[in-house]
Design a protein around this nucleic acid. Sequence first.
DNA 1: TCCTATTTTATAATGAGTACAAAGATATGA
DNA 2: TCATATCTTTGTACTCATTATAAAATAGGA
Lengths: 138, 138
Amino acid sequence: MNASLQTHRYLLQFSIKPSVQRTAVMDYLMKNRTHPTIDEIYTALSPSMPTLSKTTVYNTLNLFIERGAVQALVIDEKNARFDVDTSSHAHFICKSCGKVHDIFNLKPELFEIPQHPNFTIHSVEISYSGLCNACKES
Amino acid sequence: MNASLQTHRYLLQFSIKPSVQRTAVMDYLMKNRTHPTIDEIYTALSPSMPTLSKTTVYNTLNLFIERGAVQALVIDEKNARFDVDTSSHAHFICKSCGKVHDIFNLKPELFEIPQHPNFTIHSVEISYSGLCNACKES
DNA sequence: TCCTATTTTATAATGAGTACAAAGATATGA
DNA sequence: TCATATCTTTGTACTCATTATAAAATAGGA
Ligand SMILES: [Mn+2]
Ligand SMILES: [Mn+2]
Ligand SMILES: [Zn+2]
Ligand SMILES: [Zn+2]
């Protein structure tokens, strides 16, 4: 089974019509678990899809989020970042290099949705920040 | 003891020279625990300080954050939001009206900084999102 | 008062994201 | 196959938050 076929199926699960562009973007997210920005996605795909428009990347990601196929992270004040892994995990952003990493294996209680009289809570995002080892040394 | 004097002292604790503008901004944050945006702060202060520049509000908040006197929240993708309460508490943003509220009384374990071999973690931010009661009804 | 460093200000520039309308692609039914 | 309607992509223009820059104002010490 080739990768594009898997991606195809994944999109259909979320009622997303798998156009060439959408498939390419989703495929990129599947293979690059670095929480890329719109610009990173566009820059990576652009050489092999010369007619791709950055607007399409925006449109595509907005659609993916609307349908729940990807998660938007707000950990980085500069750019939105995207994650196909919608399972419960936290993120770390290095204040020096700006890279965003996964933090797995935290206690599941951290991701529980609390009850609150004034709000209906739908989701939780846990974000850590500091310095990565590479940046700490220099 | 008047409010401005308290604010004065608070700023000095963080080695911030208490100019008229800085005192006004900090005073506003002390009295308005609504996690205001730059624009909200500027709009609120502007009538009583007609010469105030929005750049000054930016400069001032950047200084406060640098010195640790306030906390910047990244819960809202549209604007930075600011909080004088630097104690461990979480936030909720309503996806409809955009207001940001405090959530206190969560288990203290939630705010513990985990150990990780690859990162030196300095801070944690816990953000919930959903709908507030007012928005849910309409 | 004079000098210097700090702070504030107005303006211009940057850059992420959205709005819009035209062009292109795809599906459907005769 | 053709005609047509719908969906998707694209380029451009625009909005708006934030930063850069340099001049003006201010404060404080000699
Ligand atoms: Mn992740
Ligand atoms: Mn708060
Ligand atoms: Zn780093
Ligand atoms: Zn609301």
